[in-house]
C-alpha cells in the first residue's frame, strides 16, 4: 500500500510537472524574420542590431508596405512598436497612416500563414498616447508579445495578452531581448 502511494505520488508529481511544463512552454518561431517598425521609433533599429549580433536570418525593412511579395520570403514578422514624432515626420506620415499600414500588414501576414511577434523593447520612455494607440491597434493580433518590463508597469500588455490568450515574455533590459529571441527561435 505504501509502495502504491509512493508510485501514485510520483505519477502525480510527474503529471503536475508535465502540466506546468505544458503551460510555460514557449511557442517557437521560424526564421527568416522580417523586422519592421510600428511607429518609426529607433526601437526597430535596435531590434535589427539584436538580430544581427544574435546571428539570426533576418531582413530589416523599417516601413515595409503590406504586400504579399514583401513578406513572402519570411516565416515570422516582428513589429517593434514605439511611436516617434520625428520618425513619423521623416517618413512623411502620421500615426493614423502608420496604424493603417500595420493593421494591413499584420492581417496580411496572418492570412499568409506567417507568425507575428509584437515587441516593445524601448521600455517606459517609449510609452505614450501615440505608442499606445499603435499597440492597441495591433498587439491583440500577435502570437507572442515581447515586452520590456518597464513598458508594462501599468499592466497594459499583460492585459492584452490575457484578454486575447497571447503568450507574453517580459525582459529587464533591451539587450536581454537577444536571449529571449534565441529561446523563441530555438537557436
Amino acid at each position: 500500500m505504501k509502495r502504491l502511494l509512493i508510485v501514485l505520488l510520483m505519477a502525480l508529481i510527474t503529471v503536475v510537472a508535465f502540466a506546468d511544463e505544458q503551460t510555460t512552454e514557449t511557442t517557437t518561431f521560424e526564421e527568416p524574420i522580417l523586422i519592421t517598425s510600428g511607429g518609426q521609433s529607433p526601437g526597430a533599429l535596435q531590434m535589427m542590431v539584436l538580430a544581427k549580433t544574435g546571428g539570426f536570418d533576418f531582413e530589416f525593412i523599417k516601413d515595409v508596405e503590406p504586400a504579399k511579395e514583401n513578406i513572402a520570403a519570411f516565416n515570422t514578422i516582428i513589429v517593434v512598436v514605439g511611436a516617434s514624432g520625428k520618425g513619423l515626420g521623416a517618413a512623411g506620415i502620421d500615426v493614423d497612416d502608420e496604424i493603417a499600414r500595420l493593421e494591413e500588414l499584420v492581417s496580411l501576414a496572418k492570412a499568409e500563414g506567417k507568425s507575428v511577434i509584437i515587441a516593445q523593447i524601448e521600455g517606459a520612455t517609449r510609452r505614450g498616447p501615440s505608442s499606445d494607440k499603435i499597440s492597441d491597434a495591433i498587439a491583440h493580433e500577435a502570437e507572442l508579445l515581447l515586452i520590456k518590463k518597464d513598458a508594462d508597469e501599468d499592466g497594459k500588455f499583460t492585459t492584452i495578452a490575457n484578454e486575447n490568450e497571447i503568450e507574453i515574455i517580459h525582459f529587464e533590459k533591451t539587450s536581454d531581448a537577444r536571449g529571449v529571441l534565441k529561446d523563441v527561435f530555438n537557436k
Binding site: S41, P42, L45, Q46, V49, L50, T53, S84, K86, E122, G123, T125, R126, K173, T174, S175
Partner: peptide, 28 residues
C-alpha cells in the same frame, strides 16, 4: 541620458557606435 540617446540612436549607430552600449541605446 537614456531618452536623448534613444532619440538619436540611428545617427549614433552610424557615426559613433563606440558611444553606444554594445551597439544599443543606453538605458536608465
Amino acid at each position: 541620458f537614456a531618452k536623448v540617446t534613444s532619440d538619436k540612436y540611428e545617427a549614433l549607430l552610424n557615426s559613433a557606435p563606440e558611444f553606444l552600449n554594445d551597439m544599443l541605446a543606453w538605458e536608465t
